[in-house]
Design a protein around this nucleic acid. Sequence first.
RNA 1: UGGGGUAUAGCCAAGUUGGUAAGGCAGCGGGUUUUGAUCCCGCCAUUCGUUGGUUCGAGUCCAGCUACCCCAGCCA
Length: 555
Amino acid sequence: MAETEHRPTNFIRQIIDKDLAAGIHDTVKTRFPPEPNGFLHIGHAKSICLNFGIAEDYKGTCNLRFDDTNPAKEDITYVNAIEQDVQWLGFEWDGKPRYSSDYFDQLHAYANELIDKGLAYVDFSSQEAMREMRGTLTEPGSNSPFRDTSPEVNKQEFAKMTAGEYGEGECCLRAKIDMASPFMCMRDPVIYRVKFAHHHQTGEKWCVYPMYDFTHCISDAIEGITHSLCTLEFQDNRRLYDWVIENISIECTPRQYEFSRLNLEYTVLSKRRLIQLVDEGHVAGWDDPRMPTIAGLRRRGYTPGSIREFCKRIGVTKMDNMVEMGMLEACIRDDLNTAAPRAMAVLDPIKLVIENYPESQSEELTAANHPNDESMGSRTLPFSREVWIEAEDFRESANKKFKRLVLDKEVRLRNAYVVKAERVEKDAEGNVTTVYCTYDPDTLGKDPADGRKVKGVIHWVDGNSGLPAEFRLYDRLFNVPNPAAQDDFVSSINPDSLTVKKGWVEPSVTLSAPECGGWQFERTGYFCVDKDSTEQQLVFNQTVGLRDTWAKIAD
RNA sequence: UGGGGUAUAGCCAAGUUGGUAAGGCAGCGGGUUUUGAUCCCGCCAUUCGUUGGUUCGAGUCCAGCUACCCCAGCCA
């Protein structure tokens, strides 16, 4: 797609420019470090585009690293899904995917180094006792009674921890820093805990696992990461990041920089909440088209390019933000507007019978696949006496603003003839089921010869050759802009986020999709084939509707 | 006076040696149009959280104030 030509500029790229100019680095190495405990979402896409985008633009490299230090929450299915999503977005990581668990041996050795230096100790205090000794935001903490244990003893105790001689919660390894630090994370943080859990990478090899703050900085250093980019909530942790790097024997000194995470209106972007939506069945799964996950957006019909463009447009800063859905929608519309071939589908059909069109007759009309791009070619459109039209495109009477079919008035059938509504047939409830009309045979590809102006154009599907189809229309998942701010976010789920319609689609639309992934069903929106489709029943997801200025007037 | 951060339009966001407020989204007018789409043209911050100060000149420098976000997991 036509992405904005200029490379993004942001404070992180400016830091890199300075580092390069000052000779602090001669190459740039970044990394994208998800924990494999859930699916990637649009917020991760921001980080992915930042990290991989910088690597691309500076001719550096970007690693994919699974931050897998908590086996209790992680699973191999997530690592596979994450790899797929990053690749689908169009990025290539350097070498093989890395795992923090690749470094467990080294991490363990560094922990021992800290112990040797008198900078770490095994603490047998209960978790409650540790919490009390930590102090509060305004009061300093107090030292643990185990804080002055000798390095020799600590060495032995850590070995016993590692050998499985202590149970979970019985003891942990802590860095000896400063219980009075204004940074809570510096008050002797736990760096290793006992956990008897199966690890998806290391199996049963370990029963002690390093904590994030100890692991991340060392993993960065081992991989030679130059700029370690993460979100704002880790700003305090940077002090611990630097402390660890300074106090162990490692040459590389990666630097951490923090940017604000993405917030999107009318959805949630925290793994905890997304997991809850899936587990409690509020959505059909991680790839439910209403989900802000990469998998959900993909199934919804979003293209990789549209998501990359979105990330480019929102920028990277340290400001808290709440981006409007309209921003995301504009990106996919821009992409699909140029890339998607046009077709016609009727989602809520009523029948239109052309009384002066011979019953036995039918013909094949030609329609351009794109109104402003001849290179996309054309298709044939079967046409016969009975066609389906949209129920909302007909009214028995209407004012002049209604540019569609009205009794005794004319309208153009898109790519076909001008028709005039003559009479209607209704069901028991009074709903119009059939409109009878006449057509003007001399209006194919031209205006009426007598100069009559026909302003309206409606879409249709041939009654003989149209294919039955199911259409799934989506609305925002929540009915408040910031559901995460609610105490019970589940209660603000939009009950009408999914609408299913049964209608017809023109026969040129088949299971095999165009290159961009979908079509524009003219006057309706962009759609893609859903995986629930069968040979008998096509199922379409509406990716996004067309911009609809009429809807505003009509209200 | 715990500490760490952030304040530029409805939303996102440029603005980096102080020189007179980019761009995008949304919105509003108008034109083209066999999609009420697209496309095109025009409009949309006398003002940068706030109050003072320095200066010929301040979104940019200084001081005070205010608002919001993050931190007291053996989660990341």
